[in-house]
């Protein structure tokens, strides 16, 4: 009797295990839902939306594969594992025009399964905040998200696929990626020129 019930339960248990595995795999999706950012776009004075989906990525990689110089080769190696890139940037006229709640919806997705925060920088002085999240799976990177905010700006970069941030910084100054000046300029007022009288 017990053996019969075990025999009957075996396929049912297998079905349940398959369903759970499917749900887990489906839940680990490095692609963020960016629909909630429409609210930010409505308030922003400037908006940047850059989307490189699989089709565009394939076309770009195909184009880059035709170039033979070393710089393009580096870019090609960097983007070899990337499937999609989504960039959303919003700039506001005044401070306090956007709510943290608008950004918290993105943060709630990044606190889900699979994502882990590797860097979080908060600057009280300038108000700049930068958070970097990575999703790992199967021993490799599945996605990278950068969330950068300051009182007048919100930028979200969502990369699906394998990317090495260290290699990205090596590309500075090549293939249209301009060099960045890290040190801030100190502006000094020019010395006043003495006036000569005409007597």
């Amino acid at each position: 009797m017990i053996a019969r019930s075990i025999k009957f339960l075996r396929p049912v248990l297998a079905l349940v295990a398959v369903a759970m595995l499917s749900v887990t795999a489906f839940a680990q999706n490095p692609k963020l839902r960016l629909d909630s950012l429409v609210r930010l776009g409505a308030k922003a004075s400037k908006t940047v939306e850059v989307t490189v989906d699989r089709e565009l990525m394939a076309m770009a990689v195909k184009f880059l594969s035709g170039e033979t110089d070393a710089d393009t080769k580096k870019v090609r190696e960097l983007v070899a594992g990337i499937q999609e890139i989504f960039v959303r940037g919003f700039e506001f006229e005044n401070e306090g025009e956007y709510n943290q709640a608008d950004v918290d919806e993105i943060r709630s997705q990044l606190s889900g399964p699979g994502w882990s925060r590797i860097t979080g920088v908060r600057s009280k002085k300038g108000g700049e905040n930068a958070e970097i999240y990575v999703m790992h799976g199967g021993g490799k990177v599945l996605g990278l998200t950068i969330l950068a905010t300051d009182p007048k700006e919100v930028t979200i970069v969502n990369i699906i696929g394998e990317i090495d941030p260290a290699r990205l910084s090596e590309l500075e100054g090549e293939l249209g990626v301009p060099r960045m000046e890290l040190k801030r300029e100190v502006k000094t007022a020019p010395a006043p020129t003495p006036k000569t009288s005409g007597r």
Partner: peptide, 16 residues
């Protein structure tokens, strides 16, 4: 387009 996306990504990495 891809280079532009990489540029912005690089800029934000620099902020961090």
């Amino acid at each position: 387009q891809l280079c532009l996306a990489l540029t912005i990504t690089n800029a934000k990495l620099r902020v961090a």
